[in-house]
Design a binder for these strands. Structure first.
Lengths: 338, 338
DNA sequence: AGGGTATGCCAAACCGGTTCGTCAGATCGG
DNA sequence: CCGATCTGACGAACCGGTTTGGCATACCCT
């Protein structure tokens, strides 16, 4: 309690008239402490605004208290972010969950300098949209750092820990919805099937179309941005028998599809319905708001941290997976007036 | 050297036949150590792959080794990111610079839970595009945590530590360039003048136009995304005497302008030149690549960390600022054939 | 009453570094 | 030749927590 120093455990001990040991026991519910003593200590600690020093804590626990969050590098995009808004919803949630457990979430490597990251002895890592070739992922596994991926490493889903959306269900829901809303021909602006989500969605789409005896109307978008979606949609709409509904994987692509429709003078949803599988702020705020499956990225982030912490605790020794349900957000782009 | 444990300073001491004290002195160039003894210790440490435990280090130094990187919350966008690609170039560079100095960069708050961040005793923070009202910024200043901003807190530029681009120069260069390339009427798709960069650019544009006795052709884009740029460009081009060149503040806006031009059948650059002040991967990769001022976000990140570390060292007690030069990237969108 | 057990608390050691103060031996000056 | 000074290294204490082991005291039972 002297000058500016933060109160330490000894200050609490002194103020409560007990030993440091007892304070530690009381605060952590270890050892044996009389209930009334504990109460008194907790009250004193509260009053003094005591917060344990994380460095000292981690020192004894032989941890660093650091978790990394990163994304597999994906060709052109820095940090490899496929869907920025998705990541920006996920990251704060993960960060908060980590903080709550006494960990700090650092933004993972990206770029060179692996030896710098090695110096930073991470306790664990979260990797979104993992690719088997991801060098950081391989390095972490080599040195035995626990990893949880968001989205599956498709070749090794059985042996790894991951959190994912059920994209087959999400995609199917979207398709069922546009069909129920009156769509007859549904096209799909897809991404190259590299990541588990794009593979899942493509598969769900093809299966859904096949079940209806319909051909797959797929255009691959090069990149994940509005412009790529714009051009892919142009190609779909240029076809002899163009779709009257277009589904996409990501927010940016859907916005591109919408611009393409506007450019051609197509009314949304009257002439063309649009829906995406991954929701984002741009879709809700678009002039004609766009229907999408909300994958609940914040919840994915929270769950991923939870799973990682579980893995760190060593409680569950075998790989585990969590599937987070998604919610269909029906908006103007698929509300066709009768 | 026993089992899996990482070598500690005592392992090095044992192997070199000296005391822990001497090893510490040798490694840190403190105290008095005979040159040859130092050499021997360094060699042994190297051979053992010794890396100091950061927790122990920080414990004695009464630091946490944590720096935060965040952005002022800006209305609709999560994390308040105005320009995602900019941030995604800046963040890794800042992270690397921090790591090199023994710090870890954590992704700042965003969302609630200020008490969680308080528990995390940051050593310092970096805030991009600061707004005076930013609650995190205020809180940091209240508790005396050193902050360096990227972009200026416009009301208090004199009293704060910041790193910034010279956007007046960058904007003027872009304008001079399109003029030299043959543009006659130059429009500006601007953002609301809230942040220092948008204020600077608007001012530079108005001054440049005024110097030519030309009226300011400004359309404000609501939001920073492609769609907003698209609509702002439509408005500019709908005018009685439309511009033959449009300059924008951000990457996304420029892409929107380009889509608007395409939609109207305008050729770029023959009928309309397009240029942005903040470069990004989308501009270089666009079908018709777009001219832009590259603000060197990576360098800004590095410099910001450098400045923050300087501030932490306490070497320079008075506010300091660093201006990072930008580079004009001339691309197809302003290369008009004669 | 006496031996065994449970309870409540504490002293001391430890985590892995840094740093202050001390000390032995070499060097130097008078 | 002797005391002062400098050099190189070390022991011990410290940073702020946790954890192990021990020690009284109270309680129980026969």
């Amino acid at each position: 309690m002297e000058q500016g120093r933060r109160p330490g455990i000894r200050d609490v001990a002194r103020a409560a008239g007990v030993s440091r040991t007892t304070v530690s026991h009381a605060l952590n519910d270890k050892g044996r402490v009389a209930p009334e003593t504990r109460e008194r200590i907790l009250a004193v600690a509260e009053e003094l605004g005591y917060r344990p020093n994380t460095n000292a804590l981690h020192l004894t626990q032989r941890r660093t208290g650091l978790l990394a969050l990163t994304s597999s590098p994906s060709d052109p995009v820095p940090l490899g972010l496929l869907d920025v808004d998705y990541f920006l919803a996920l990251a704060p949630a993960a960060s908060e969950a980590a903080l709550r457990a006494g960990y700090a979430l650092v933004l993972g490597p990206t770029g060179q300098a692996p030896e710098l990251w090695a110096q930073l002895r991470l306790d664990g890592a979260l990797i979104t949209d993992p690719l088997p070739s991801d060098p950081f992922l391989r390095e972490l596994e080599r040195q035995g750092t626990p990893v949880v991926t968001l989205g599956r490493d498709v070749d090794r889903a059985e042996e790894t820990w991951w959190v994912d959306s059920d994209l087959v269900v999400a995609m199917t829901e979207v398709l069922d919805h546009v069909e129920a809303a009156g769509a007859r021909r549904v096209g799909f602006v897809a991404e190259p099937p590299r990541h588990s989500y794009s593979i899942d969605e493509l598969e769900a789409y093809e299966r859904w179309q096949a079940a209806r005896g319909a051909p797959a109307l797929v255009e691959e978008a090069a990149g994940n941005h509005t412009e790529a979606g714009f051009h892919a949609a142009q190609r779909l709409l240029d076809a002899a028998d163009p779709p009257d509904a277009i589904v996409t994987t990501l927010e940016g692509l859907a916005l591109g599809v919408k611009l393409a429709a506007e450019t051609r003078g197509l009314r949304v949803p009257e002439d063309l319905m649009i829906a995406a599988v991954s929701d984002g702020p741009g879709l809700a705020q678009a002039h004609t708001s766009i229907t999408a499956a909300d994958l609940a990225p914040a919840e994915l982030g929270t769950e991923a941290v939870r799973l990682l912490l579980e893995r760190l605790d060593g409680a569950a020794p075998t790989p585990r997976a969590i599937v987070v349900p998604s919610v269909l957000r029906v908006r103007a782009s698929t509300r066709r007036p009768r």
